[in-house]
Structures are given as structure tokens and as C-alpha cells.
Computed example of a mutant assay.
Amino acid sequence: MSSGNSGALVGIKVVDASRVLAGPFAGQVLGDHGADVIKIESPEGDECRGFGPPFVNGSSAYFNAVNRNKRSVVLDLGKEGERERLFAMLEEADVLLENFKLSTLQAWGIPSATWFTERFPKLIHCRITGFGDDGPYGGLPGYDAAVQAMAGLLSINGDAGGEPVRMGVPVVDLTTGMNAAMAVLLALQARHRTGRGQMADVSLYDSAVSVAHPFLTNYLHSGKVPGPTGNKHANIVPYNVYRTKTVPLFIAVANDRLFAKLCAALRVEALTADSRFASNRARVENRDALEVELMQAFALVDGEELGERLLVTGVPAAPILDIKAVAESEHARYRQMVVNRPDYIGPGVPIKLSATPASIRRAPPAIGDFLPTSDTSVFDGEQ
């Protein structure tokens, strides 16, 4: 990974006035790819600095994982003079990321979210909310787990017949952050044509509903309310965790060709000739009968050896690794997805561009680490 700044977004100036996870994650994506990102923090700092342990140099590992490639400027936005400093930054900025409550903006004398692009016509204003500013849930605060529940994600996660389970990864916040970064890039592209900025309205709720796939579309077309399926897939069979003599294997077989390869490896070729299992549609309809046959076959084999053999032949088969194994994985290190440097330890950059590579140029900032002078642009510092 490049240590210099030759990223695709060099020259783009971002004011990241968001906090906690979705907005900061979006700001980090932009910063990784070359944007100059100034993080605005209250005097108390972004509260996720305290989301630990573990802590590194006074901030949580949680905070550090979504705030690299930024500089921190402290502003008490409850004070008019400090807000004017923010507005001065926006005169120069290309992008504003924020997740303020609408009532907070109004208390500052900002009547609506559209005010920013009205005052700063070239600004890309990415507004991140829980549920949007209007509608039946408009203005409600958004929290990952609560939105998982209200968007149906908890209802389809967990063991079949069991209680709903929160997805362990904050998938709503992270998906919203990705959508926010994508929205910024789309709006920047549109500005090339129109010369004008625009507001991007990105909510946790919309992001969560959008990833309820395939359960939402299945319901819309069938009227059948789905429930938790455990490790099974609603539309694909076999797709499950199977116990072997050694280790459990996750198997995901999406077509008839792969099913035939799996059966050959398990020495149960007769299953492919059974009309009940001849197609994915038939296998879904006869799921229970097929699962009995496969579980018996898997119980007789060495999972480690079979898993490697299946992967070589193109059959999706994976051992279930814990986070320690992933962190120590040779492939994760080869792909630079685990970074361990004197100035930064954390996850790597997943988007790898050949001509304009991403880079980790700055460690996550200490609170207020950047103190621009009154006669200097906040964006004049080194990135």
C-alpha cells in the first residue's frame, strides 16, 4: 500500500462533522483515497474515542479503525463564533459529512438541511440520519441495533425456530457509511457536469432495508413472512454448515454443476440422479431429505482435507475461522487487510486501484491535533 498520496481523490477537501461510526467510516473511505479530511469534534471529542477497551494512545481501537487519514479540529458549535469558523471551512470545502439532529441545526439558526447547499452552491452535503428528517419515523435517532430490529434484519437472523439475534457486525452503520461515501462520489461526478453541488440524504433505515436480501423481495413476491434460517439459505440448497470428522465446513453450492462436484467428492453420486435433487428448485423443495443424506456423508470425511480439495475444484467450501485466525492469516496480510505499523495498527483498505492507489498517510488524530492559524486555510496543512 502506498505511503504517499497519489489517490483518486487528491485535491478534494472534506469537512467531516459526523460522529460515532457511519459518517466517520465514510470520511475514512474518502481519506484513504486521497481526500484532505478535517474531522470536526466537540471539546469532549467524538464519544466513540471511549468505546473500549482496548485503548491506544488515549483513544479506543474502535475509534482508530474509522478515523485514520484525518486531522482533528475542535469546535464548540453551540457558540456562534465557532459555527462561523465551520462555515468559513465550508467556503473552501468540496464535501460536508454530518449527522446532526435537525433540531440541533434549527437551534443554531439553520432552518432546514437544504440550507447548506443554498449557502454553498458547490458543496456536496452528505447528511446521515437514522430515518430521514420527515415521514412517520422522521427525526428519530438511529442506532445500529435498533434499526436492525425495525428494518426486519433481527427477525431473519438466528437459528431456525429460535429467538431473533442481532447481527454481531454493525452492518447498518457500516453499510450506511459505504452508501454515504458512494453518494459523495456520485454527487462529485454530477458536479463535473452541472457545476453545482447537492445534498445526499442517506439514512440508516434506508440502508438497512436495502440489504434485507433476499428476504424482502421473497416476501413481496410470495406473501410468505420469513423467519430465521440459521446458516441455511432461503433460496439455495445445499447452503449450510456441515459437521465432519474433524472441523465444520460451510458449503455454498449455487448450481447443478457444483452440486455434482460436491456429490462426487463425498462419494454420493447417486444423489445427482435422484429427481428430488436434480435442480436447485427441486433441492429447495426437498431440503430436509437432502440434508439428511449430506449430513451422513459429511460425518464420514476429514473436513480439513475435503475443504481444501473442494476449493481446488471450485466448490465453495470454507472452514469457520475465528478473528484471531483471520488476523494471523497469510492471505489477509498478503492482501494488506491487516496493517501493523509503528504509527497504525488496524484493518486495511479493501478498494485497491491500480493507477491511483489508496494509502494510509496519517494515524488517527488526537483530539484537536490540528490548530490552524487564523490567517491560514484549514486545508493548507500536509495531508
Rank of each mutant, 00 (worst) to 15 (best):
A212F: 07
A22Y: 11
V172L: 09
S72L: 10
R127V: 02
G130E: 05
T176S: 14
V247C: 05
A327S: 09
Q189C: 01
F100R: 09
R119C: 03
V349I: 15
R287G: 03
S329D: 04
D274Y: 03
H221I: 06
D343H: 02
R287M: 10
Q296T: 10
A180L: 11
S279Q: 06
D144Q: 09
E308N: 11
D36K: 14
C48V: 15
R281Y: 07
A190Y: 05
I38M: 13
S2T: 07
F250W: 09
V73M: 13
P53T: 12
N340S: 14
D134F: 03
Y239P: 01
T373G: 14
D256I: 10
Y334R: 15
I360C: 00
Y143H: 15
L9H: 04
G197P: 02
F370N: 02
I251A: 03
A260N: 06
L154A: 06
D173W: 13
R127C: 07
G109E: 13
T217M: 13
T194L: 12
G348R: 12
R85A: 13
H213F: 14
A265C: 05
L105V: 06
P364N: 10
G177F: 13
S3M: 13
P121F: 04
V378G: 01
V66F: 14
M337V: 02
R166V: 15
G161C: 08
A88Q: 14
L154T: 15
E285M: 11
K101F: 13
N64T: 06
T356R: 01
D375V: 14
V37I: 04
A187H: 05
K324W: 02
D76S: 10
D159Q: 11
L371G: 02
S72V: 12
A26H: 04
G81Y: 08
R335W: 03
A187Q: 04
T129I: 02
Q198V: 12
Y344K: 00
F277D: 10
A65Q: 14
G27K: 00
V326E: 00
E91H: 10
V14D: 02
S112W: 05
A318R: 09
V202S: 11
T175M: 15
S18G: 15
A260W: 00
